[in-house]
């Protein structure tokens, strides 16, 4: 019976689903990675995603232009990020609780706007799958990897770019320095607050984009609480990924692939209760986390506001 899982159709189905499911985690998780590497924990990702998802959906529906929707998501994400930065960096509020505040704010705001501006669940014609010439013709794998929509490609392109910026550029070095030892960075002339403002705002923009990837590319619908906890999973994946973009990719794919697998387990009618099936991605991720976390250490200054002495 288990052998049914290992047919080409099922394995390809799992890959395709997993790649799609991982998309919002990648945007939000990589944005959060930048924030955390600079020392700011933003638990408001979910709220930023919701507001971004609504903004993208609303603008795309009103203008008929999906790119304006993407722009709107980036913009409101940036505003939410800036507000979070102001509260956690300038006002030095406790990051955990203010992040939760932003989550609730985003949840309430997106629902309020949805109820007043749209008033009912509607659909939008979102980004269509776009076959990449030549690559999509590769037998079997072409369909899986190179026949997705643009926002899915964008998420996977973001991983190497983010890794490069973090590890190989001056800006990335500053981000890491500010997150490890802000006093030392400050004494060397790095503007700690500015770097953190940039990373948190960038995180907001990417969270907004994560929301847009749901509302105008993968689901093409908006409903209150559309993200339903995906933003918190993205934050968890940052820890899982050891604060590295490639690690976030590995975590997002593991979680999503196992989730896709459990969908097939149920569709094929394998004798596993659905309650156990839906637990699989969480259990496996926790196990992998326990194994992996031994080797990595969080940024030293994570959640610690920077106060210049003297």
């Amino acid at each position: 019976m288990i052998s049914e899982l290992f047919t080409a159709q099922v394995l390809l189905g799992i890959l395709t689903s997993g790649i799609r499911l991982a998309t919002p985690y990648l945007y939000a998780g990589i944005g959060e990675t930048f924030g955390q590497r600079s020392g700011v924990l933003n638990l408001g990702v979910e709220g930023q995603m919701l507001v971004g998802a609504f903004a993208a959906f609303y603008v795309a529906r009103k203008t008929g232009n999906l790119w304006l929707g993407v722009l709107a998501a980036l913009l409101v994400g940036a505003l939410m990020g800036l507000a979070m930065a102001f509260i956690s960096i300038t006002l030095r509020a406790k990051q955990g609780i203010s992040g939760i505040g932003f989550f609730l704010f985003g949840l309430g705001l997106s629902d309020l706007l949805f109820q007043t501006l749209l008033g009912s669940v509607q659909t939008v014609s979102g980004f269509r799958p776009l076959a990449i010439p030549l690559l999509s013709k590769i037998p079997v794998l072409g369909e899986v990897f190179f026949n997705q929509n643009l926002l899915v490609y964008g998420a996977y392109l973001l991983v190497p770019i983010a890794a490069f910026v973090m590890d190989k550029t001056t800006f990335g070095l500053k981000v890491r320095a500010v997150g490890e030892n802000p006093e030392a960075a400050d004494s060397l002339g790095v503007n700690v607050s500015l770097v953190r403002y940039i990373t948190v705002t960038l995180g907001g923009m990417l969270s907004g984009l994560a929301g847009a990837s749901l509302s105008i590319a993968l689901l093409n619908v908006f409903q209150q609480n559309l993200t339903s906890g995906l933003g918190f999973i993205a934050v968890a994946l940052v820890y899982f990924g050891g604060w590295r973009p490639w690690g976030v990719l590995a975590g997002a794919l593991l979680f999503s692939m196992v989730n896709a697998l459990q969908l097939w387990v149920q569709v094929l009618g394998l004798p596993i209760p659905s309650e156990f099936a839906v637990m699989m991605p969480y259990v496996l991720t926790i196990v992998a986390l326990v194994v992996a976390v031994q080797r990595v250490r969080p940024p030293t200054a994570l959640t610690k506001p920077f106060i210049r002495e003297g």
Binding site: Q9, G13, L219, A260, V267
Partner: peptide, 25 residues
């Protein structure tokens, strides 16, 4: 008749992917 319980009343993304799985099947 293939039935998929996704374990949530609100996870639109997973409901969507469950439907994709049905179509693939």
């Amino acid at each position: 008749v293939n039935v998929n319980w996704i374990g949530s009343f609100s996870d639109v993304a997973l409901a969507s992917e469950a439907a994709q799985t049905h179509v693939k099947a």
